[in-house]
Amino acid sequence: MGEPAGAAAGQGTVDAARVVGVDLGGTKIAAALVAEDGTCGEVRTVPTPGAEGPEALLAAVTDLVRDVLAGDGRLAAVRGGERATSGDRLPLGGGRSVAVGIGAAGAIDRDQGVVVSSTDTLAGWAGTPVAARLRDALGVPVAVLNDVDAHALGEARHGAAAGAGSALVVAAGTGIGAAVVLDGDVLPGAHHMAGEMGHLPVPGAEGLFCACGREGHLEAIASGVGLAHLYAALTTDALTSREIVALADRGDAAAQETVRRSATALGRGLAGVVTVLDPEVLLLTGGLAEAGDLWWSSVEAALRADLVDHLADIPLRLGALGPRAAIVGAAEAARDLLAVPMPTPSTPPTPSTPPTPSTPPTPSTPPTPSTPPTPSTPPTPSTPPTTPPATPPSLPPAT
């Protein structure tokens, strides 16, 4: 089996900041206070109301977080058809900083805290603005990331990949999920899908259908569901992956062949991704990673057989945090929010005193209109002379 590394999660004293990690899964929601060293307080769980839609999911998470912070034991489970209310509970912070991290199924836009895409397991989940809605409900900073990314972040900071500059963390359980860790944080990818190797086409998966509806993907043969489908194809018997592994442990030939083929497909898929990424450490987690020596030896043999010599000695480790890894990683994402200083709003400049408007010039007194000239008295017509005109000269007498 791969080498375990890192410290397992356990009971611890939470630090001055109260940080809650939440693992929102398809069947249950688990939450706990998480200390700076990665240790968890009591993990509380409630059933996931996945078929009831986003409103019910967000209400369940809100109530559970309040219960964890209050520590009063009143879980937000459905009792007698009524959901417990939280209006009378203690203040969230108790005078200390509080933040909440959510690891949730689906492709998550981590910057915006929005579900980009999701399967039908959580009805109507795609498009839900999880961070904004929970921030409004709880009044505290909320970080949201994919559940496998949360799992990887927990292992990278406090588990089997702690101290590694880079790691590929693969969760093999009901499905196949993976995340790429670089310098202690998870790479999201341009479309929030970095590391999703479950949808790689692999040899051996021909004729088997993935949950995405396509044939021949890694998840169709290497996941717990894929293992059960492969066994049914080989035997026509319908058993769960847990039952098949138990049969293999007891020496059942068909069960052993199923486990070997499923694990070999995973090993070959891992070799392809390791060749592309060249991580410092390869980590396997999830329920199938605990399936026993036959499963683990088959994965490792196929992995190392397909790797070039220069990569063939990559450390292959078993996750250290177990089912609490996603809770720890979600809390780490929330703690990162608290570590970022809030920008201090700049003091708005004191508005300059507007210049006193100059006194408008006193309008000059309009000139007094000149008195129109007195019209001159028309000249008195001259008096005709009173002297009678001169007597005209006498004509000389005719001769």
Score class of each variant (00 low, 15 high):
L168E: 04
G226T: 03
N146C: 12
L134M: 03
C210Y: 10
A171Y: 02
A126D: 10
G139N: 13
V225H: 06
A152L: 12
S241G: 13
H229I: 00
L218W: 02
E206D: 15
G224M: 11
E155A: 12
V202A: 01
H191F: 13
V169S: 04
F209H: 14
H191D: 08
A171R: 01
V144G: 13
V225S: 14
V142W: 00
V186N: 08
V225C: 00
L227S: 01
H191Y: 10
L145G: 13
G189K: 08
L187I: 14
D147Q: 06
L187E: 04
A167S: 14
E219P: 11
L138D: 10
V225D: 02
E219W: 06
T128W: 03
D149W: 05
G173M: 04
A172V: 15
L145I: 12
A172S: 11
H217A: 05
V181K: 08
M193I: 12
D237F: 00
D185L: 03
A194I: 13
T174M: 04
A156L: 11
I221S: 02
A123N: 09
R214S: 14
T235A: 03
A123V: 14
V144P: 13
G163H: 04
G177M: 05
V130A: 09
G175C: 08
L145W: 00
V144R: 04
A171W: 00
M193H: 10
R135E: 15
A233W: 01
A162S: 13
C210W: 10
